[in-house]
Design a protein around this nucleic acid. Structure first.
Length: 625
RNA sequence: GCUUCCGUAGCGCAGUGGUAGCGCAACUGAUUCGUAAUCAGUAGGUCAUGGGUUCAAGUCCCAUCGGGAGCUCCA
């Protein structure tokens, strides 16, 4: 048995032990569902007739140890479907699982001792004593839905960390703790990058330092995109409902949009309005009466004058394209856009900068003839590589194909998917990317680029989506070489994805130690005594003139305090300027991340080093002359 | 939205029914210093908000808001 198989057997067996422990503690009424292994252990889903909280974890862990010590045998049995249904007749999830098994499937069960049996394919250990070295710890409990369907039973999922040895468990927990040190919310706070306020949930405030970085990312995006022929536009942030009706957002996305509903009038007198539901999903008998006071305004989102904040840039980009008649010679037309977007999320969906309600994308809508799709996608992937590699980021590509409820011409779909596949095969090699059959949007296939955060969670950053539907909805055309009017294909794409999410990701990946070109301030200047302020100002001026972001501490604090402040902000270069430097027109550089210093660096040399890192978007800090 | 945990000074935290505290930061003064914490002092709070229990609530209960982890969602 190789290590991977061993881990699987081991973790999977522990899941059974967990279930057995929970049943022994909470009684036979416990409904147990499934208990698979995961990356760092396993979990088991239950309906438990009591509420289980963190304080109950030790008791469950103790019970598990006690069970292991019984040295029970694990016995595998093959049984018939009817025997299985009889055996699990009180277990509704097991019953459902059995009924869903294919007719010819051999049904196997595992006994752990005489009193616990689980429907399971196995394999498992043969005796509990094989698990004696088990290093496990209950990680958390959370809600989960049966079969991932929020309309079905809500289960309690108990997560277990499980490793073959105590050392490995310890190392893993340490790794998690270290990941928390990289948390972008923590670092963002320490470095004064951004903040939130309860009056605007999920909408970041960018502080002076964070905004500098944001602007640098913007600048970098513009630089790369202009090289690739993109042209930038900007459009209204709120549009009348009519636009969202055409684009289809009103039908599919209305509950995620922030509204400015139309005003239908005012109440002439106090009145009770009966039959009001809190949610469209509520049953009619949940309706209640609402008291309306005289002069109260009546807003109605179905009114013609309703406006809504844009959750996406696409519809306005369509209008921009439609402004004039286009020739095939103009294609591809690339409208990039960095406007602010708003998406209303259900509470509980927000997560630091990773999932917000207000953000900007490095968005683009490219209008192409069908024959240009392949070249254009290849160029977009090249652009993505150029951008990600600048940050040293690696990503994983996912290709999502035609769903059942697709719209448009199936022949166009087939050709487009084939074109995407050719590029992906060429770029990442066959099997070098994931294919999600049927997971595409109804309007077109897509390629998503996923990047990991500090905890190893993957977030979608880049996305490339073909769209056959919007050009249709907006009646877009171009005149082809033969004089006929044809419909362009739209490519939606973003590389950072949202600036917010991307900043979250790179903050965690860099642990707040950003590359020189990106750091909010690049050079912190520390005059040793106030009499050195004059020379400090001269150095500041020289650097600023070269486009370097500088902060100088002219206060009368002592130099150690000044150095400490800039160190805490992780400024890459801290210049210490005293008599010697002023006399010789040099600087002494304290390098970030070490105690190393570069002494007697001519000012002109420093300017050159900074410019080089800025111009080349260098990842590593230059630490020698 | 669901399960669970959390919310005390700008930040990090202590305070488990009996006078709201500590460290850092801030401010004032002294120190004018050669590479990460000089010394002394001052100020800073409706303990997220609203109800309740109690002689007494930061602490117990309920609701709301905000946040974390996970689930679901992200055409």
């Amino acid at each position: 048995m190789n290590k991977e198989e061993y881990l699987e057997v081991y973790r999977h067996s522990l899941a059974h032990v967990l279930a057995k422990a929970v049943i022994e503690i909470y009684g036979k009424d416990v409904q147990y569902a499934i208990g698979p292994q995961i990356d760092d252990g396993c979990y088991y889903d239950f309906i438990i007739p009591a509420s289980v909280t963190e304080s109950d974890f030790p008791a469950i862990e103790d019970k598990m140890r006690e069970i292991l010590k019984r040295r029970e045998n694990w016995v595998r049995k093959e049984i018939s479907r009817s025997e299985a249904l009889e055996l699990f007749k009180d277990q509704k999830f097991k019953t459902e699982l059995i009924n869903d098994l294919p007719e010819d499937e051999i049904i196997t069960i595992y006994y752990t001792g005489d009193d616990y049996v689980d429907l399971c394919r196995g394999p498992h250990v043969e005796n509990s004593q094989e698990l004696f070295n088990a290093a496990f710890k209950i990680k958390s409990i959370s809600g989960a839905y049966w079969r991932g369907d929020e309309k079905r039973d809500q289960l309690s999922r108990i997560y277990l960390y499980a490793f073959p040895s105590k050392d490995e468990l310890k190392a893993h927990i340490k790794m998690i703790e270290e990941a928390l040190e990289r948390d972008h919310k923590k670092i963002g706070n320490e470095l004064d990058l951004f903040m939130f306020d309860p009056t605007a949930p999920g909408m970041p405030y960018w502080l002076p330092r964070g905004w500098k970085m944001y602007q640098e990312l913007l600048k970098f995006s513009r630089l790369i995109q202009s090289k690739h022929g993109y042209t930038e536009i900007s459009a209204p942030l709120i549009n009348n409902k009519k636009l969202w009706l055409i684009s289809g957002h009103w039908a599919h996305y209305v509950n995620n949009m922030f509204m400015v509903p139309g005003l239908a009038g005012y109440m002439s007198a106090d009145a009770e309005v009966p039959g009001v539901l809190e949610s469209m999903d509520d049953a009619p008998d949940e309706a209640k009466a609402v008291k309306m006071l005289a002069k109260a305004p009546l807003y109605n989102r179905e009114n013609d004058d309703t406006m809504a904040a844009k959750p996406m840039n696409c519809p306005n980009a369509m209008l921009t394209y439609k402004r004039t008649v286009h020739s095939y010679k103009e294609l591809p037309i690339k409208y990039s856009e960095y406007d602010v977007l708003h998406r209303k999320e259900k509470s509980g969906q927000m997560n630091g900068l990773f999932r917000v309600q207000e953000f900007r994308q490095d968005d683009d809508h490219t209008f192409v003839a069908e024959s240009q799709i392949e070249d254009e996608i290849a160029d977009i992937i090249a652009t993505a590589d150029e951008i990600y590699s600048t940050f040293g980021l690696t990503y994983r590509a996912e290709f999502s194909t035609r769903p059942d409820d697709f719209m448009g011409d199936i022949e166009v779909w087939n050709r487009a998917e084939a074109a995407l596949k050719r590029i992906l095969d060429k770029k990442y090699g066959e099997g070098g990317y994931e294919i999600n059959e049927g997971d595409g949007a109804f309007y077109g296939p897509k390629i998503d680029l996923q990047i990991k955060d500090a905890l190893g969670r993957e977030w979608q950053c880049g996305t490339i989506q073909l769209d056959f539907q919007l050009p249709h909805n907006f009646g877009l055309t171009y005149q082809d070489a033969d004089g006929t009017l044809k419909m362009p294909v739209v490519i939606h794409r973003a590389i950072y994805g949202s600036f917010e999410r991307f900043i979250g990701i790179i903050t965690e990946n860099f642990k707040g130690v950003f590359p020189f070109w990106l750091n909010p301030y690049q050079v912190g200047i520390v005059p040793i005594r106030q009499e050195h302020n004059e020379y400090a100002a001269k150095v500041e001026q020289a650097l600023t003139a070269a486009g370097v972001r500088v902060e100088t501490d002219y206060s009368d604090n002592n130099m150690k305090e000044k150095i400490k402040k800039f160190k805490n902000y992780k400024d890459p270069y801290i210049l210490v300027l005293g008599d010697r430097e002023a006399a010789e027109e040099t600087v002494s550089i304290n390098l970030r991340g070490s105690n190393k210093q570069l002494q007697n660096v001519p000012l002109s040399k420093l300017v050159e080093m900074c410019k080089k890192m800025n111009d080349e978007h260098t990842l590593e800090l230059i630490d020698s002359i």
